[in-house]
Structure formats: structure tokens, C-alpha cells
Amino acid sequence: MYNLMADILINVCLAFLFGSLLLGLHRKVMARVQLRPGPPLIQYLLHSLKFFFKESSWPKTISKPFYVAITVILCGIWVTGVIVGPVFKGSLMIIFGIYAVHKIVEHNSGSSSGSPYGKLSCVRAVFSASSELLLFASVALIYLLSHSMDIGAIINYQEINGPLIFKVPLLAIMFFTIIVTKAPYSPFSITTGKDIISGFETEHFGFLRGYIMLSESIMWYVLLWLFLCLFFGPISLLWILIGMIIITIITGFISAITPMLNPNHSVMIQFTIALICTVGTLIQIFV
């Protein structure tokens, strides 16, 4: 008998555990490229769990209700991402909304702590909203092709017409840029840059940091799942997980060999990628 709650619980646990392992692999790949041994694969997971048992402390400058609520919201939106994505294969618009709320969380998480680093990150979160342009353009172009916002329907479309990655590769590159943007230490991750001491994550300690790390691992899983389903169509869960490992290795290489960009450059490059890929995809569709 199908049990929806069990399905959600299994998918959320899988997203958290596998997402954590992927982020551990990401660090490992970066380390190996930089000729360091790197941490064990389970380091990210161990860190996430460790923070839930650490003592939490509260800086004097925080806006407390906001400071606490924002981490719970972050966790909530990405659990919703799992429900909308892998469980229901629902609407892309909800995923777009989740991504937009993620930006708001980055912004408000930075401002709620009162830390100067958090505030800088807060300003950069507004800058980096340009990555939403990539997502919006991707969603719009996928709709133009498949005439649907429903992930399940888009997968079915690919079953009949072939994977979108071969039909509109520029669109896949644009979506891949969103993944690179969200990868740790990526050239576009200006909100958590080391020049601002990890930005909005600086001032969250103990279980609040645990929530942030848990959410990030689920986010990574959902974004990769979305990319694979939107561009490769009906593939089995085994191939989705293998695909996630391959994409994580690729992003690990990119993060290891590229410096973090200046915020203005980051925004300009994202705009340029969005423009080139959108125009290219439109030409491919209509010409």
C-alpha cells in the first residue's frame, strides 16, 4: 500500500544523507585537484550532525526571532523542494519560488545577525539574484518546448521526443550554471565568500548551523535531481544518483581551479551566460 508520509520521509532522508555525501565528495575532489589529501567523504555529514549537539550561543546584535526563524525557513523550503520534486514531480514554478525564497533567506540571514560580514553577504545576496534570471529563463524556455510546467509532464515529453540535453544543449548549460552557482567555493558563490568569512553563515552556531548545513545538502540533491530529470528525461534512480556523482565531480573541478569572482564580475558573467544561452536556445527552437 502506498504511504505518502513514508515516501516523503524516505526521500527527505535520502536527500539529506546522499546530499551530504556528495558535498563531502565535492570537498574531496577539490582537495585532490589541489594536491591535498582532503577530508573523508563523510566529513560534511559528520559536521552537520555535530552541530546539532553543539552548544548554541546568541550574539548580542541579533534580531532573535528572525535569526532563529530564518534557518528553519531554509530547512522548510528545501524539504518542500524534495516533496515537489522527487516525491510528486510537481510544478517547476514552485521550485522557482523555493529558489527565490532561498535568496531571501540568504539576504535576511545575513542581516539578522548584525555582523558586518553577514551584512556584506546580505548585500551580495541582492546582487546574486542574477542567478534567478538563469533559472527563470530556463523555466520559460522549457515551457516553450514542452508546453508544461509540470516536471512529470516534462519527463514524459522527453520520453517521446528524446532528452532535452541533446535538443537544447545551451539551455542545459544555463541550468548547469545555476548548479555551479550553488556549489561550495564556486566562482559565483559570492554570498559565502572567504573574503567575508563565509558571509551569512558566519554568525550561526550550534543547532542553527546544523539546520543550515542540513538544508544545503538537501538543496544540492534537489538541484542535481532537477537537472537530471529536466534534461535527461525518464532515467532510473540508480542513474540519477550516478549522474549526481558525476556532476559533483565536475563542479568540484570547477571550484578547485577557478578563483572566486568579484561580485560585479560574477553578476556580469551570469547575465552574459543567460543572454547567450537564451538567444541561442530561441534560435534553436524557432529557426
Partner: peptide
């Protein structure tokens, strides 16, 4: 399939 993969993970 998700349950099996969760167990493997």
C-alpha cells in the same frame, strides 16, 4: 527503489 537506496546509503 528509494527505500533500497536509502538503506544502501
Amino acid at each position: 527503489a528509494e527505500l533500497y537506496f536509502l538503506i544502501y546509503v
